[in-house]
Amino acid sequence: MPPSTDNPDSEPNQIDPDLIQEQARDWLVRITSGNMSPDEAESFKRWCAQSQLHARTFAETSRTWRLLGAAAELNSDTPVPLPARQLSRRHFLAAAAGVTGVAMVTHFGMRTGISLGTDSSIQTARGEQKRLDISSDIAITLNTLTRVELLNANTSTNEHRVRLVSGEMDVQCSSFAEGFSIFAAGGEITGSDAHINVKHINDSVQVTCLQGLAEVSYQGQRARIGSGEQIRYSPSSFAPPAPVDANHVSAWLNRVLVFDDIPLGEVIEEVNRYRSGKILLLNAQVAKRRVQARFELDRLDEVITLMTDVYGIKSLSLPGGVVVLT
């Protein structure tokens, strides 16, 4: 629990840089947990206002935290979340000293001819998109925070199998593509002469056919979907095909997000996948409101303007791109 600014015993009589460093880390853990209450947000604001050292220490701590996250992903095949609550101050500072000189570049465009690693996997960073030309007949575009594995990239067969470990991918395959399969969370998606969007977030998978035909198999159940249809499956369900607006689903290819009658809380979750930092909506009632919105990926802070201007929600901007909405 972060230090309370309302308790006179929670702060020393004289400024203690080590204690402020520890408190800054505790505040950062609380903020990034997504469970910060409005009262705690006000308490944090008062803590930052105590001195320039308080505000500067939190800004530096937030920056270091982001660098550590990037370093962890650069040195691991799978992005590794930082063990925030288990990371001691000593280890935190020691790790921070080890990331000096780490350079990061965010690519918002698309790249072709990606060179794969020895494990035949590739992933994208936050806000990044990449295009993979699997063959002359199959092209895949990876969306933000996505990881895929090419299961037979080192073989000479005409079969192509891809596992979507997490994130979202757009797949276009011509009628000449042979034996193309996508695996995601235990399910299999196949298609020929088709344009397919597959999104795998947590345990849920969403398969949308944008053009042509696709077949989805999961736990013994099988269904075929045509253009403008979508199937969702998870460990607890296999929903029947449902009509969707294919242009909305694929809007991210044009660097746009479109939401049609979607709860605002889900909108913010999706925006957080693209935006640096994090938007925290602490008003549970507002989170349930269904909205229609369109945001350009280069102007995602417009979602904050929407909530402050339309819904009258108060916003608190914090270092590291964190915005608390109450």
Rank of each mutant, 00 (worst) to 15 (best):
T5Q: 13
P8A: 15
P12D: 15
N13S: 12
Q14G: 03
I15F: 12
D16T: 03
E22Q: 13
Q23K: 10
A24K: 13
R30H: 09
R30C: 09
S33C: 11
S37F: 06
Q50F: 15
S51A: 12
S51W: 11
Q52D: 11
T57H: 08
T57P: 06
R66V: 08
L67K: 09
G69R: 11
G69W: 12
T78V: 10
P81G: 07
L82E: 00
L82N: 00
A84H: 03
A84R: 12
R85S: 07
R85P: 01
Q86P: 02
Q86D: 09
R89F: 09
L93K: 10
L93E: 13
A94D: 07
A94F: 14
A95P: 02
A97V: 03
V99Q: 05
G101L: 14
T106Y: 14
T106L: 12
G109M: 07
R111F: 04
S115G: 05
S115M: 07
L116S: 05
T118H: 10
S121L: 07
T124E: 06
R126N: 04
R126M: 11
Q129T: 14
K130S: 03
I134Y: 00
I134N: 00
S135G: 05
D137I: 01
A139H: 13
R147W: 02
T155F: 02
H160W: 09
V162H: 07
R163L: 01
R163T: 00
G167R: 13
F176W: 01
G186K: 13
N197L: 11
D203P: 02
Q211N: 09
A214C: 00
E215P: 01
E215Q: 15
V216Q: 02
Y218A: 03
A223F: 00
I225H: 04
S234R: 10
P235C: 14
A246S: 15
N254I: 04
I262Y: 03
L264E: 05
G265A: 02
E270F: 10
S276T: 08
K278E: 10
A284R: 15
R289T: 14
Q292K: 15
A293R: 08
A293L: 15
E296Y: 10
L297F: 03
V303K: 13
I304N: 08
L306H: 07
D309C: 04
I313S: 08
L316V: 04
S317E: 14
G321A: 06
T326I: 05
